[in-house]
Amino acid sequence: MDREEVISVKEISKSFRTYKKEAGLLNTLKSIFRRNWIRKRVLHNISFEVYKGEIFGILGPNGAGKSTLIKILSGILYPDEGFAKVLGYIPWKDRKKLSKHVGIIFGQKSQLFWDLPAIDSFELLKDIYGIPEKEYERNLRVMVELLDAKEIIRKPVRTLSLGERMKCELTASLLHNPKLVFLDEPTIGLDILAKESIRKFIRKIAKRRKTTFILTTHDMKDVEELCERCIILDKGLQIFLGKVEDLKKYFWGRKVLTIKYEDKINIPKIKGLKVLKAEKYKIRLEVDTKQVKIKSVLQKIFSPNVIDIEIQSLDLEEVLKRIYRKRW
């Protein structure tokens, strides 16, 4: 494929030195004098590429190493081993140069003056990045229009809702036309409508400006709707790299049947039918429709004792839950 490489990461590893302390006052006192240092592996042998204009997802449960990876790619941390190139720079060596072309958002933190309208923070960013007046005005106008944020940017940030604030954060990090934007959980805590409009905006910017986005998130809907490809980390290990479609395809055609019943029902032994969870008067079954048809399973199970049947397909969330629990 003849696409421009924006990020290339080769076999990056990182570990932190931290100390272990047992609970209790005595141990606290002890730890003042002697610390039990341990090395904790945060990333191990990570490799991937990201191309221009792509929205690339970094997924993983808490503590998987997502933020560490973003910090390495933006040059705040250097890795213990491995090599990375971002926009042609080695991030931890050329952070200053790289920073001109990069935008970053930490969904849980703000880069805006809390007590001032966001527009004042934008003006400061204009000076810090040295954005020419015309370009600044044009960019601001476009963002404000796309995000429907004309009123919002003139109110003190502390009075804004989370969704409104996120619109301002997005604007702030895109004013200098970055080629690459890191979004660390941009939709965290937002309601469905706000999430929807943020996602729409990110899609548009990626398409129009060919901006590359690196997105870490817990929200599988973000990934399903935005990302074409993603990487999944778990305890610092790379457990998946590829198309989001492929991830879903693996579980394609698998359905979950939840059956409620009274008294007793008979669960036949069929190939492609698996019991997920059995409770009193309720059972969850997984059906692989490539091996057995839902219809025939239902026919075999159905009896006057069955009260309710629910059929669901596996969504990405369920898929990930299984990956994390190592239950492929």
């Binding site: 910090k71 933006s74 040059g75 705040i76 952070r95 200053k96 140069k97 920073s99 001109k100 990069v102 970053i104 930490f106 933190k109 703000s110 880069q111 810090i128 990045y129 040295g130």
Partner: peptide, 13 residues
């Protein structure tokens, strides 16, 4: 509490 990291990612010392 804040955003020290994002300051490191601005082109100003």
């Amino acid at each position: 509490y804040g955003n020290f990291v994002s300051f490191l990612l601005k082109p100003i010392s």
